[in-house]
Design a protein around this nucleic acid. Structure first.
Lengths: 134, 134
DNA sequence: GTTTTATTTTAGGTTTGCCTAAATAGTCGT
DNA sequence: ACGACTATTTAGGCAAACCTAAAATAAAAC
């Protein structure tokens, strides 16, 4: 299920940079996979009700997919922030993305809480686009 | 390569609880896999030079495998400590184990550094058995 | 020293995810 | 409207891990 998460998060991020649907090629580039593999996965995600997929057009997150992606994005932002602000690591963006799908919510939730309590709060949660109109 | 890591770390931990070699069944129980899957993996690890494997006996980490496992164990201890002492999560042992094989060393290294600098240092690095005679 | 029991291994099969190459569909210029 | 180009999809394959059931082996019990 962890690969699935990467696709969902990638989709989420791309959807917020330019309007959906997201083409296979675009997503493939972001995730560093072949377009063919990406198409295949998008089709799989559709059967799971997580995206709407239109051949030659691209994919759009369904409400259910967006839910999942939203949680992943929250984790991603938290991790990313932690890596940069606390561990002082740049270039850990990609790693944060990978990890968002792997770490259990209890960990990222607690991490976020801890950061907000002990650290500079502010743009932790709101640093990404948590939603935007259809 | 992440599954491989789990096996190496499991092997490392079991080797330090009772003397090697580690049987398939024992390792299977620790990693929550079927004995058959474990046997198969041990054979694969042998072809990669990471363990010595004796049928019906079990596996022993080679120097090269022990090197790898040692790094993983260091990460594991760091993560485990972080989860418990900073995030105040119990029962994250298993997650720490899983993550040790996934997080890049740069992250766990920096995490360890940061903990040692800012937190209660003490038994962070030395909390596990970092080595013991053959 | 057999037989029973427990463990380990092999056999056979499945799923997931990826890739390359070939086919197909859309798009744009003229 | 046609051809050329580009992007996407399908086809065919492969590798990694896992599982269950059956066979083999080792160890213990009698």
């Amino acid at each position: 299920m962890t690969t699935e998460s990467e696709y969902l998060l990638g989709l989420y991020i791309v959807e917020h940079r330019s309007a959906p649907p997201v083409s296979s090629g675009r997503l493939a580039a972001v995730l560093d996979r072949s377009p063919a593999a990406t198409t295949e996965m998008l089709q799989r995600l559709e059967t799971r009700g997580l995206v709407d997929y239109e051949p030659y057009e691209g994919a759009t997150l369904t409400p259910s997919g967006r839910d999942r992606a939203d949680g992943l994005h929250r984790s991603y932002v938290t991790l990313s922030w932690f890596f940069r602000a606390v561990l002082d690591l740049d270039a850990a963006e990609r790693e944060a993305m990978r990890m968002a799908g792997i770490v259990s919510p209890s960990v990222t939730d607690r991490l976020a809480e801890t950061l907000l309590t002990n650290g500079d709060p502010r743009e932790v949660i709101e640093s990404g686009p948590p939603d935007r109109g259809e």
